[in-house]
Design a protein around this nucleic acid. Structure first.
Length: 515
RNA sequence: GCCCCUGUCGUCUAGUCAGGUCUAGGACAUCGCCCUUUCAAGGCGGCAACACGGGUUCAAAUCCCGUCGGGGGCGCCA
């Protein structure tokens, strides 16, 4: 071994190396995303290495398509990795399906040293035994029946074409413990653990085995993963021990639950990252929220950027109890992050949602963008999510007196209001230009002519202009409409005169309105 | 069934390791008020928790024991 290589190994021994190891069996779930995020925060804070490893040994369920989506989704969230299947690295390959010879090699070593053995039991037999044990209230654990088959005999059965899995021999008594960075010292009774499968009869490794080989060979220093792996840890520790590997440090994160305290699933609402993107949740907001699931910064700060989170994060302060995913708080955080964007970022983020709704054109001119910025500046502060924006924009695009809400109708039922609406419409229907100045002039005239003021005056005028009882402040709304009518849009914004004429026409054909 | 983890406002949590400074702090949600030509936003304020029962102690959210609740595991899934 060269001096340089040994220096390299020495360095990597002290190097913090963590990994996120998902199975590409579906779209990435927020619970897994949170695990990835905690690993990432830890690595980035400590100047360590963050690795993405794809655990695709479940051939039935793993799909290439999912791996691609997984990568896209993680990147969308704002995570990056130093080694992974898409970018390579010194400890690859990073896809378990490409590491099969490695698993076979170590399994053989264990067979040869007598620490593992061939098991010829069929999955059906085992399933039956397990069910029987469960029914009797016994421990559903493998009997160890094949443990005593002499190696020569096993080999000859193998040669004659029989299929076998490889199992690890687990001591029948004793205790095994480890220190968990979040939960402290944990101990387990070995007599309760059956001999785990290392290699399945199809040659593919089982999770509890592959994870050990990979974590060791990839020089993982800290395994940060979900609580559902706590009881797997002793099994894995046994593999480390049999192979003479030093185990890494472990930290088990609590689960993420839905509102009814069951595991978060589709029926609780959005769970996969792409769904949050579609809802108009900013990745930095989801990132912020996920970091807060089971952890809180020391001084109670709430709205934090990725960099601030890196600086503040502390694995030792992570909560031990399960957290419920609260959409309301996520939405609030999203609003806060939305507010932090610059005007042009706001417009850029809003655009896809307005395009999708058919309100803005595919080809945007600089006039479009400048108008969008103004509009977004007014509407964004009223929403939690970007996907609520088209609905707000309809205040500008839709003008339909026939669809007035109850509140607006009730106001029009008052004779004084109706008179103001008509007066206002008559005055503006023939105007060639309309702006705030003209508007105020017209309003002043009406004020003089009718004596109305305040709410009595402005509420009807709002209805005349928008056919709605509520919305944006009028002096912010008018410039937006005025400028918007000059734009080329898939669906034009009605001008003041169109509005006035449409409203008058509507009123004339409504006999039940007085006057 | 057995094993493991876990338990502070409805929710996320601070406080628990080193018991008194906790008549338990913050945030979301909710309710009320203010601002306001509407609706929001914003500002201010209110409601709201140490799962329960024992013990130790001058003193317990904090330490010990038990009970109960919640979650996870016991796969040729990961």
């Amino acid at each position: 071994m060269t001096r340089r290589l040994s220096v390299f190994i020495m360095m990597s021994m002290n190097q913090i190396r963590v990994r996120f190891a998902p199975s590409p069996t579906g779209y990435i779930h927020v619970g897994n995303a949170r695990t990835a995020l905690f690993n990432w925060l830890f690595a980035r804070q400590k100047g360590g290495i963050f690795i993405l490893r794809v655990e695709d040994t479940d051939i039935e369920r793993s799909k290439e398509e999912y791996e691609k989506r997984l990568i896209d989704d993680l990147r969308w969230l704002g995570l990056d990795w130093d080694e992974g299947p898409d970018i390579g690295g010194a400890y690859g390959p990073y896809r378990q399906s490409e590491r099969l010879e490695i698993y076979a090699y170590y399994a053989q070593k264990l067979i040869q040293s007598g620490q593992a053995y061939y098991c010829f039991c069929s999955p059906e037999e085992l399933e039956k035994e397990r069910e029987e044990a469960l029914a009797k209230g016994l421990l559903p654990r493998y009997s160890g029946r094949c443990r005593h088959i002499p190696l020569e005999k096993a080999l000859s059965r193998l040669n004659s074409g029989e299929k076998a899995a490889i199992r690890l021999k687990v001591p029948s008594k004793g205790e095994l413990g480890f220190h968990d960075l979040i939960r402290g010292d944990l101990t387990f009774d070995l007599s309760l653990i059956g001999d785990p499968i290392l290699l399945r009869s199809n040659g593919l490794p089982a999770y509890n085995y592959a994870v050990v080989i990979d974590d060791h060979l990839m020089a993982i220093s800290h395994v940060i993963r979900g609580e559902d792996h706590i009881s797997n840890t002793p099994r894995q520790l046994l593999v480390y021990r049999s192979l003479g590997f030093d185990p890494p440090l472990f930290a088990h994160l609590s689960m993420v639950m839905g509102k009814d305290n069951t595991r978060l699933s589709k029926r609780h609402g959005a769970t996969s990252l792409d769904q949050f993107a579609q809802m108009g949740i900013l990745p930095e907001a989801l990132f912020n929220y996920l970091a807060f699931l089971g952890w809180a910064p020391p001084e109670g700060q709430e709205v934090l950027s990725r960099d601030e989170l890196i600086a503040l994060f502390d694995l030792k302060k992570v909560s031990r109890s399960a957290a419920i995913f609260d959409y309301e708080k996520l939405y609030w955080l999203n609003r806060q992050h939305l507010k932090r964007l610059t005007l042009s970022e706001k417009a850029k983020k809003a655009y896809p949602f307005l395009l999708e709704a058919g309100l803005l054109p595919k080809e945007m001119t600089s006039q479009h963008w400048s108008w969008l910025e103004k509009a977004v500046d007014n509407f964004l502060e009223t929403v939690n999510r970007l996907d609520e924006l088209p609905e707000r924009f309809r205040l500008l695009f839709d003008f339909s007196p026939e669809n007035m809400d109850k509140e607006a109708r009730e106001i029009l039922d008052k004779e004084s209001s109706l008179r103001i609406v008509k007066l206002f419409c008559e005055k503006i229907k023939t105007l060639t230009s309309f702006n705030l100045e003209v508007f105020n002039q017209v309003v002043n005239e009406i004020k003089k002519e009718t004596g109305a003021k305040g709410k009595e005056l402005y509420h009807p005028i709002r209805i005349a202009l928008t056919a709605r009882a509520s919305g944006l402040e009028l002096d912010r709304l008018i410039p937006l409409i005025e400028e918007g009518t000059k734009l080329t849009l898939p669906k034009p914004i009605p001008s003041w005169s169109e509005r006035a004429q449409k409203m008058l026409h509507f009123l004339d054909n409504r006999p039940f309105f007085k006057v």
